[in-house]
Simulated assay, not measured.
Amino acid sequence: MNEDKPWYQSRGVWGGIVALVAALAGLFGVTLDAATHEALTVSLTSAAAAIGAVVAIIGRLAAQKTLR
């Protein structure tokens, strides 16, 4: 595993966030089944990657120096 990537593109990080939210929701009587948990993790990972791409594009367009 030598490939670097931002934290928000990690399924492991998002899986942990979903697990934390599910545990907190469980305290209030809300339950998530395994399929919903997986679907939520995949959706959040995809959304985070899309947001990262938009931020990168906006950053490049706003940059003051040109690329070589």
Rank of each mutant, 00 (worst) to 15 (best):
M1Y: 09
M1D: 11
N2T: 12
N2Y: 12
E3D: 03
E3P: 00
E3Y: 00
E3G: 03
D4H: 02
D4T: 11
D4S: 14
D4W: 08
D4K: 10
D4A: 10
K5W: 09
K5Y: 11
P6K: 10
P6E: 13
W7Q: 13
W7I: 13
Y8T: 05
Q9S: 15
G12C: 01
G15F: 03
G16Y: 02
V18K: 04
V18E: 02
V18W: 02
V18C: 06
L20N: 09
L20W: 03
V21R: 13
V21Y: 13
A23R: 02
A23I: 01
L24G: 07
A25T: 02
G26P: 00
G26V: 02
G26M: 02
L27M: 10
F28R: 15
F28N: 15
G29P: 04
G29F: 03
V30Y: 06
V30W: 03
V30K: 06
V30T: 05
L32S: 08
L32V: 07
D33P: 07
D33V: 04
D33C: 09
D33M: 08
D33Y: 04
D33I: 03
A34P: 11
A34E: 14
A35E: 00
A35K: 02
A35V: 00
T36E: 13
T36G: 14
H37A: 08
H37N: 05
H37I: 02
E38W: 00
A39G: 03
L40G: 05
T41R: 04
T41K: 01
V42Q: 10
V42E: 07
V42M: 02
V42K: 05
V42N: 07
S43F: 05
L44Q: 01
L44G: 03
L44C: 04
T45F: 02
T45Y: 00
T45N: 08
S46L: 00
S46Y: 01
A47R: 14
A48V: 10
A48Q: 12
A49K: 08
A49V: 09
A49F: 01
A50K: 12
A50S: 08
I51Y: 13
G52E: 13
V54Q: 13
V55Y: 10
V55K: 14
V55T: 13
I57E: 11
I58S: 07
G59I: 05
G59D: 12
G59L: 11
R60P: 04
L61R: 15
A62L: 13
A62Y: 09
A62C: 11
A62K: 15
A63G: 01
Q64G: 03
Q64C: 02
Q64L: 06
K65F: 09
K65H: 06
K65R: 07
T66L: 14
T66F: 14
L67T: 12
L67A: 11
R68Y: 06
